[in-house]
């Protein structure tokens, strides 16, 4: 998975997820989830990282199952199979399973793709203007700093004997001031390194869709369609 072209992988996985949402087959959801886990394992994705992404998804999926169980629509969607006579269980499994299917796909993409390569590929392959591509990379790179700043601001409110909610305007204000300042500094720094408003630049990294990449983008959703039809 790691060697696939990031743009092709993105669209392949997105198409698979969209196709998945058209079917109402619990086994298909779980099948896709299992396939993602297998693919991730083959790509040597660290288990710890995978769990960090999948656990919150699992939590929400469980919540969703119970919601569907308690407040299910009257009729079950899709074809009944003999296994589940109770429409509520069926619907719950469908919703929870679909979420896990999405989460598996998302995890597979995130953990097998170098983020900066993905954005670079958007720039070279999809002609996303360089301003947007490198602007995103620059902003994304400020995340650790922003997270520190957020907790620092919260402690400075506490140190002044104030209570501030997670998104209270008073708390957001210093952070927004910094966001504006930082973005200006960053833009100045990038421009002083020759980053221009035009898209004239050379490309050190090459991104091209090879046959295998296109095959993935087409075959992954196609496989889900076939499995869906067969299972349904």
């Amino acid at each position: 998975m790691r060697r696939l072209n990031p743009v092709c992988k993105f669209f392949g996985i997105l198409a698979t997820a969209v196709v998945l949402s058209l079917f109402y087959v619990p086994m298909l959801n779980l099948g896709v989830f299992a396939a993602c886990l297998l693919a991730a394992a083959c790509s040597r994705v660290p288990l710890r990282h995978a769990c960090a992404i999948l656990l919150p998804a699992l939590l929400i999926a469980v919540g969703m199952f119970f919601s569907a169980y308690h407040f299910s629509a009257d009729t079950a969607m899709g074809a009944h199979s003999g296994m589940f006579t109770d429409a509520r269980v069926w619907n719950g499994l469908l919703l929870a399973g679909r979420l896990m299917g999405f989460a598996g796909l998302g995890m597979l993409f995130t953990l097998t793709t170098n983020q900066i390569d993905f954005i670079r590929a958007l720039n070279t392959q999809l002609k996303l203007p360089a301003r947007f591509a490198y602007g995103i990379i620059a902003a994304w790179g400020m995340f650790p700093r922003m997270a520190r700043e957020y907790s620092k601001t919260r402690s400075s409110f506490r140190a002044r004997g104030l209570r501030a909610g997670f998104v209270s305007p008073a708390l957001l204000l210093p952070l927004l001031v910094k966001s504006v300042r930082w973005s200006e500094s960053m833009a100045v720094a990038m421009e002083s390194k020759g980053f221009g408003e035009t898209d004239t630049r050379s490309h050190y990294y090459e991104f091209r869709a090879k046959a295998a990449d296109i095959a993935f983008a087409v075959l992954a959703p196609a496989a889900v369609v076939m499995a869906g039809v067969w299972l349904g």
Partner: peptide, 15 residues
Amino acid sequence: FELKDIIMIGVIGVL
């Protein structure tokens, strides 16, 4: 959208 606008939008997203 100038570079600084794009970065600012991005940083607000990051926030």
